[in-house]
Structures are given as structure tokens and as C-alpha cells.
């Protein structure tokens, strides 16, 4: 394809990204570096601040979500579970956002519907983990649309296995952030991940690979223009996709372990659907 077409594709995906993802990297980095003035995030660093912040999270929940009754889990042990349920609600909403983004990739909705489902099932957790990176630094992560900053130490202090959930994402994110991608680069990279022709059970691989190839060309050109001094950035970025698959596999195993050990835990139906028979 001509360079002009590749640039148009890049602009289109960036616009879709801005439309469907409410917290951009630009905004997240401004919050993390304290450039938002009075709107500094609420910091959760211990159980006391979690309980204070929890009310804040619950107030901001989306209208069509059921509220978890506060009395159903009581005591300190239940704090983790309650927090985990909030994370699930946000993740389900994020899956919806990623689906809308996927549908905006030219040619995606013309693919076989079952293949679209397969691409989302296998791609969405990878996309969500990549999207966490801009929200993170070595000390913690923004949650709740950037209104809260939760410290890494606090997440590590939760009881097992909750304390094991985020640490691999921090390790990945800190390394990923060294690449210094911006939102327009991210949009293309997310599309490349979604259009992976090697997902198990795909019926018609060819058109998916053709779409991915075009987006890959667009990404390569974008990185050359946007990061002229960053050598081998395209290759380095593609290598991240291997690490990502391992993180997702470990994450899914951890959730499956949680399902067995936490009798009070209910997995969100959409997330259950995605994780069932996945790796």
C-alpha cells in the first residue's frame, strides 16, 4: 500500500482509540507526573485508605452495574474480594471498549463472525494488559479512570493469591514504558495484537493475516516517523508480543486458581466466557 494510505489508516485507528478509550496515555502521564494541579488522584496505600477509596470507587460505578452489597463480605479478609469484584466490573467494561475499537479496524467486521469472536477472546486480555502500562510506573498504578493511584507495595501486601496478580504486570509495564510509545503508536499496536492469525480455532486465517500485514506496515512507518532516533523500535515492540502471551497464560491460571479457592468469588459472566477453555 501507498504511504498515504498507511498514514490514513494510522489516523483512523488513532481517532477510534480516542473515541473508545477514556483514559489516554497522555492524560495518565499528566496525572502521574502531577501536572493536573488540583485533580491529584486519591492514593490507596493501606487498608484504611482502601476503605476510604472504596466508597469513592463504588460511587463512580457505572449505572447498569449491580452494586455488591457491602454486607455480603465483611471483615478484613473480604476487602480483597470486594476490590477484586470492582476490578472485574471495570474489566468487563474495558472488554466492551476494546470490542468497539476492534470493530473500527477496517475489514474487521467483514471477517467471519466466529473468527471475530475468536480474535477477541484471545486478544482482549493481551490488549488490556498493554493498556495498563501507560497507567503504571514503578511505584503503582492508576485505577478507576485515573481517579485513584494504588501503590505497588499495597498490592504486594494483599493476601495470597491476590498479591501475585499485579506484580508481573508491573514488571512488564516498567520495561514496556521504556519504549515510550504514544497514544497514536498504541492504537496501531493494539490493532496488530487483535489481528493475530495464529489464534486457536480460527477458520479463515488468510484475510486476518492480510489485514494484520497492512496494519503492521502502517505501524512500521508510524514508528519511523514518530521515533526517528529509536533504533529497532518496531522489532523491539513485536518482541513484546511473546512476553505478553506468557503473562496472559499466567493470569488466566491465577484466575482459575482463585475460582477454586475463593468460594465467595463470582466471576463476571463476560470474563468467564473469555477465559473458558482459553489456554
Amino acid at each position: 500500500p501507498e504511504a498515504a494510505d498507511l498514514r490514513a489508516l494510522s489516523r483512523h485507528l488513532y481517532e477510534a482509540y480516542l473515541k473508545y478509550f477514556p483514559l489516554t496515555k497522555a492524560k495518565a502521564r499528566a496525572i502521574l507526573s502531577g501536572k493536573t494541579g488540583d485533580n491529584a488522584p486519591f492514593v490507596i496505600h493501606d487498608m484504611k485508605s482502601l476503605m476510604e477509596g472504596e466508597q469513592f470507587i463504588n460511587c463512580k460505578q457505572l449505572p447498569n452495574q449491580e452494586h455488591q452489597p457491602q454486607t455480603s463480605h465483611s471483615g478484613m479478609d473480604a476487602v480483597e474480594l470486594r476490590f477484586f469484584q470492582s476490578c472485574q466490573s471495570r474489566s468487563a467494561e474495558a472488554v466492551r471498549e476494546v470490542t468497539e475499537f476492534a470493530k473500527s479496524i477496517p475489514g474487521f467486521i467483514d471477517l467471519d463472525l466466529n473468527d471475530q469472536v475468536t480474535l477477541l477472546k484471545y486478544g482482549v486480555i493481551e490488549v488490556l494488559i498493554i493498556m495498563m502500562a501507560p497507567l503504571m510506573n514503578k511505584d503503582g498504578t492508576l485505577i478507576s479512570y485515573g481517579q485513584i493511584f494504588m501503590t505497588r507495595e499495597f498490592l504486594k501486601s494483599l493476601r495470597k493469591p491476590f498479591c501475585q496478580m499485579m506484580e508481573p504486570k508491573f514488571e512488564f509495564s516498567v520495561k514496556f514504558n521504556v519504549l515510550e510509545l504514544d497514544d497514536s503508536d498504541m492504537a496501531l499496536f493494539l490493532a496488530v495484537i487483535i489481528l493475530s492469525g495464529d489464534r486457536p480455532g480460527l477458520m479463515n486465517v488468510k484475510p486476518i493475516e492480510q489485514l494484520q500485514e497492512t496494519v503492521l506496515h502502517s505501524l512500521e512507518l508510524q514508528l519511523k516517523l514518530n521515533h526517528p532516533d529509536s533504533l529497532q523500535l518496531f522489532a523491539k515492540l513485536l518482541q513484546k508480543m511473546t512476553d505478553l502471551r506468557q503473562i496472559v497464560t499466567d493470569h488466566v491460571h491465577l484466575i482459575q486458581l482463585l475460582k477454586k479457592t475463593e468460594i465467595d468469588m463470582c466471576l463476571h459472566p463476560l470474563l468467564q466466557e473469555i477465559m473458558k477453555d482459553l489456554y
Binding site: 468487563a92 470490542t99 470493530k103 467486521i109 471475530q116 477477541l120 463476560l270
Partner: peptide, 20 residues
Amino acid sequence: KEKHKILHQLLQNSTSPVDL
């Protein structure tokens, strides 16, 4: 198809919010 009911819905219902 039943196994991925919500994903199918998300893909087919344009932008109308599916009951998550």
C-alpha cells in the same frame, strides 16, 4: 455460539450498551 453469547452480542449490537 452459545459459549460466547455476550461476545457475539457485543460484536453485533452496534454501540448500544449490552447489559454487562
